[in-house]
Computed example of a mutant assay.
Amino acid sequence: MQSADIPDVQKFYDTEYQISLTSEDADQLYDVVDGVPVYRTQYQAELIIDFVDIPKGASVLDYGAAKAKSLYRLRERRPDITPHVFDVSEDYRSYWQGWVPEEQQATYLAPAEWNGRFDLITAHFVLEHVREPVEVFSDIARLLSPSGRFFFSVPDVLGNPADMIVVDHLNHFTRTSLSVALDRAGMKIERIDTSRLRGAFVVVAVLRQGEEKVAPPGRSDIDTQIQSLNRCCESWHAAEKIVANALARHAGKKIAIYGAGVYGTFVYSRVRDIGAAACFVDRNPHVHGRDHLGVQVVPPEALPTDIDVLYVALNPAIARKAMADLVLNQRKGLELVYLS
């Protein structure tokens, strides 16, 4: 939580980050409902429609757009909107061509002629990556029309502790810090939700009007959140002990890791020097057949039969529920190791 920022953040996001650029349709798996995969970009588009009454013919900006897949999905549902995209990298321009006109694209700096233009600005998991969130909120505030809405999502570190250990997440948000940061940028929260997007805050913000004031956070609220953050940090130390104890208990046995994301990376970092994992297991078909940290990713049904121990590297809040639907959960002789 107190570690230094990654060196040269601007260069990193400009030329090295390249999220979901492995293929045109690369996406993050959000959920599986009745056996059907639900991908994050489609789900985010549905959330926008649910949370914001978008005016007909609205000018919409995806801020920190990357491939702008959620905006693309939104435009499929609302072809009347005028899409705009902005990112701090040139790497995504090829994905914008053909559906976002050149004059509605910008990189590195959103142009002054866009000031006050937008009825809706979206930012999906962007603010945790920036060094100075208040500066970014202020930039977004200048682009909003007086009646515009700012829809954004950021990780809820208390709802998803993985946020705490992601190296390029430079900020970790709570309700209080979000409210204060927006207030300093001349905005206020209109709606905030932690139930619709797992492990994240979904926020709709608007410009403050005139001399309107936002009530400062109370001392007791701040103290409660600090205590919760301390417990979050302690949970990672507890997870380290769980993995270490499991390794000692199952010395010499063949292991695999369920989850090729942040939690899986954490487990791998603890086991690689003792006995490398045979594979990662993941439900997302976009990662099947690829390597993660030099280890192959396979679907659950392809887990080798000689695996003795499977580390369930998922958010502990959902891990047991996620595994309950899998045949792996019933496989005889396979021990599952959870992180809490």
Rank of each mutant, 00 (worst) to 15 (best):
M187C: 07
M187D: 01
K188L: 01
I189D: 00
R191T: 11
R191E: 07
I192Y: 06
D193P: 00
D193L: 05
R196I: 12
R196S: 15
R196F: 08
L197F: 12
L197N: 03
L197Y: 06
A200H: 08
A200N: 09
F201I: 02
V203C: 05
A205E: 00
V206E: 09
L207P: 01
R208G: 02
R208L: 10
Q209Y: 13
Q209C: 15
E211N: 15
E211K: 14
E212K: 06
K213D: 10
V214S: 01
A215N: 09
P216H: 01
P216E: 01
P217M: 02
P217A: 04
R219S: 12
D221A: 10
I222E: 00
I222P: 00
I222W: 00
D223W: 15
D223A: 15
D223M: 12
T224C: 04
Q225D: 12
Q225P: 01
I226F: 06
Q227L: 12
Q227V: 09
L229K: 02
N230Q: 15
R231T: 08
C232S: 06
C233F: 08
C233R: 13
S235N: 03
H237Y: 11
H237C: 07
A238S: 09
A238H: 12
A238M: 13
A238Y: 10
E240I: 06
E240C: 14
K241A: 15
V243F: 13
V243T: 12
V243R: 09
A244C: 06
A244W: 09
L247Y: 10
L247A: 10
A248S: 11
A248L: 11
G252N: 14
G252S: 10
G252T: 09
G252H: 09
I255N: 01
A256P: 01
A256G: 04
A256F: 03
I257A: 05
I257H: 03
Y258R: 03
Y258N: 03
Y258M: 06
Y258W: 08
G259I: 03
A260M: 05
A260N: 05
G261T: 03
G261C: 04
Y263A: 03
T265M: 13
F266T: 07
Y268A: 12
Y268N: 13
S269F: 12
S269V: 11
S269R: 14
S269E: 14
R272G: 00
D273C: 11
I274D: 11
G275P: 00
G275V: 07
A276L: 14
A277V: 09
A278Q: 12
F280L: 03
V281H: 00
V281Q: 00
D282G: 07
R283N: 11
N284D: 10
N284H: 04
N284A: 05
N284T: 06
P285Q: 15
V287Q: 03
V287S: 04
V287L: 07
H288I: 14
G289S: 05
G289L: 04
R290Y: 14
R290F: 15
G294C: 06
V295K: 14
V295R: 14
Q296P: 15
Q296L: 12
V297S: 02
V297C: 10
V298I: 08
P299D: 13
P299R: 07
P300L: 13
P300F: 15
E301F: 05
A302S: 10
A302K: 15
L303K: 01
P304L: 07
P304D: 08
T305G: 10
I307T: 02
I307F: 04
D308G: 08
